[in-house]
Amino acid sequence: MEKPRYRSALIVGAGPGLSASLARLFHRNGLTVALAARRTDKLAPLATETGASVHQCNAVDANDVAALFQAVEAKNGAPDVVVYNASARVRGALIDLPPEEVRQAMEVSAFGAFLVSQQAARRMLPHGHGAILLSGATAGVKGFPLSASFALGKFALRGLAQSMARELSPKGLHVAHFVIDGGIRSASRPVPSDAPDSLLDPDAIAETYWAVLQQHRSAWSWEVEVRPWVEKF
């Protein structure tokens, strides 16, 4: 059974953690990598490690996103794997939330994903090949107290992914939404010594993304949940 072959990846919302793990994994598997973020000052070491190009982009600005894809296309060719890994939130009681900050959080978590997916699909559809991967969260299936803005954005992201999968999958594009159900391990958030593997390992999450990319089109997943073995759900 022939597995899909991908050539070029774009990660939007790049930074440490999952994005870095994805960049390294894509690079090891022979893909050229492009990294995009609103702030790029901390991406130089990762770019050096993975040979990635770095691009500044405000994902909620349609002109910025269009320019990003033009720049990546000019350097690496049109990406056939696009990952949207940007999100934002403002915590607080519903009655105290600043409306403008909530709007901005929703735009980053969901509207930016729409803009990026639109540009990606326009380039993938003529070839009938490509994958759009959207990084979701528990908040996309379960709204928590004091987290209305995150629930708004992530529920919208999940709905976008489901709609896109139903529209684009029959045309050869693999759309997948990942529910990351739990905290992700990082340098600032180490795994407690008395609770091994209680946080998600970003390298392990990246391997799951890659496994989905390798699925044969006769058995595509549009959504995958990942959580630590001790996480309640």
Rank of each mutant, 00 (worst) to 15 (best):
S8D: 01
S8G: 01
A9F: 01
A14S: 14
P16L: 11
G17A: 08
R24S: 01
F26L: 11
N29E: 13
L31I: 07
A34Y: 01
L35E: 00
A36H: 00
D41H: 07
A44N: 15
P45C: 15
A47S: 11
E49Q: 14
E49N: 06
V60S: 11
D61W: 03
A62V: 07
V65L: 02
A66V: 09
F69P: 01
A71T: 14
V72M: 02
N76C: 13
V81D: 00
V83L: 06
N85E: 00
A86F: 04
A88I: 10
V90I: 15
R91V: 13
L94P: 07
L97I: 13
P98W: 10
P98N: 07
V102P: 04
R103F: 11
G112W: 14
F114N: 06
S117Y: 00
R122T: 13
R122N: 12
R123C: 00
P126R: 12
G128N: 02
G130W: 06
I132T: 05
L134C: 07
S135H: 04
T138A: 14
G143S: 14
L146K: 11
A148D: 06
G153L: 08
L157A: 10
L160I: 14
A161T: 04
A161W: 08
Q162K: 13
R166I: 09
E167G: 11
G172M: 05
G172W: 03
V175T: 10
I180W: 04
D181S: 08
G182S: 08
G182A: 11
R185N: 06
S186I: 14
A195F: 01
D197W: 01
L199W: 12
E207I: 10
Q214K: 15
S218D: 12
S218N: 12
W220P: 04
W220Y: 10
S221H: 14
V224S: 11
E225L: 07
V226N: 00
F233P: 01
F233D: 09
